[in-house]
Simulated scan of single mutants.
Amino acid sequence: MNGDYENGDDELEELDEDSLHNSEALPTSRPNPIVIAASVTARGGVLWLPVAGVLALAGKKKTAKRALTAAAVAMPIGHLISLVVHRQRPPAATMPARQALPEHPDSSSFPSKHAVTAAAFGTATALDDRAAAVFVTPLVLLVAYSRLRTRVHWPTDVLGGLAIGAVVALAQTGMGRSARVRATSRRLVAMVRPSS
């Protein structure tokens, strides 16, 4: 059983390494300033504050609130998972792509906390307002790509982060709906009681 797990882990690492080789999608050169800005501003979830502000100004306050809540819940979950899963960052310290970032993270590589937060915000937005998602989704994808392009994460770190963030947003939506159903049920019961 252990042998199977180790083989699977080795295959995953091999897939990660192969996908990070110099290519048109992920060259080792310095990234476009927009990619760098996406990575830097998304640190700690800061990017999503002005995005939520824009949504609120556009009359989508409820969507902005739900998206920010999902991101706020997802971020510590990502950090907790990284404390359990100890994974080294890609060995790219000398690459111009990595040197483009002012940060030099040494925490566990899995999951990408940038991706976790971005996916939670984006998924919550999409679940609440499809029109808003057209604006937010490209930003989510840009942040996720920036973590690969700047070589601070393996592809599976980013994919895992996106999945975790999406699950958090879905769970939040499910809990919200359950609470609304319970509140509606209580109101209906309260309306029926006086007449019985």
Rank of each mutant, 00 (worst) to 15 (best):
G3A: 12
G3V: 08
E6I: 13
G8D: 11
G8V: 01
E11K: 14
L12W: 13
E17M: 11
E17A: 15
S23G: 08
A25K: 13
P27M: 12
P27I: 13
T28A: 15
R30H: 13
P31D: 07
N32S: 15
N32K: 09
N32F: 15
I34R: 15
V35T: 14
A37T: 13
S39F: 14
A42T: 09
A42P: 12
V46P: 02
L47Q: 06
W48L: 03
W48E: 02
L49M: 09
P50I: 02
V54C: 04
V54H: 03
L55V: 05
A56Q: 04
A58C: 06
A58P: 00
G59Y: 04
K61S: 09
T63Q: 07
A64L: 10
R66M: 11
A70G: 06
A71M: 05
P76D: 06
I81N: 04
I81Q: 05
I81A: 08
S82Y: 02
V84T: 09
V85F: 11
R89G: 03
P91M: 01
P91A: 08
P91I: 01
A93Q: 12
A93W: 12
P96K: 07
P96E: 08
A97R: 08
R98D: 08
R98Q: 09
A100P: 08
A100R: 03
L101E: 10
P102C: 08
P102R: 11
P102F: 07
P102S: 07
P102H: 09
S107G: 13
S107K: 13
S109I: 08
S109H: 14
F110T: 10
K113D: 15
T117R: 07
T117V: 13
F121K: 09
F121S: 03
G122M: 03
T123C: 12
T123N: 10
T125A: 03
A126I: 03
D128N: 05
D128L: 03
D129L: 05
R130S: 10
R130V: 02
A131C: 00
A131I: 05
A131K: 12
A132M: 01
A133M: 00
A133C: 02
V134M: 00
F135S: 00
V136K: 01
V140R: 02
V140E: 01
L141S: 00
Y145A: 00
V152M: 04
V152K: 04
H153A: 12
W154K: 09
D157T: 07
L159I: 10
L159Q: 02
L159H: 01
G160W: 07
G160K: 06
G160R: 04
G161W: 07
G161N: 02
L162S: 01
A163E: 01
G165T: 02
A166S: 13
V167K: 07
V168I: 11
A171N: 02
A171S: 09
T173V: 02
T173L: 06
G176I: 05
R177H: 15
V181C: 05
R182T: 12
R182Y: 07
A183G: 05
T184R: 15
R186D: 11
R187V: 12
L188I: 12
V189K: 14
M191N: 10
P194D: 06
S195H: 14
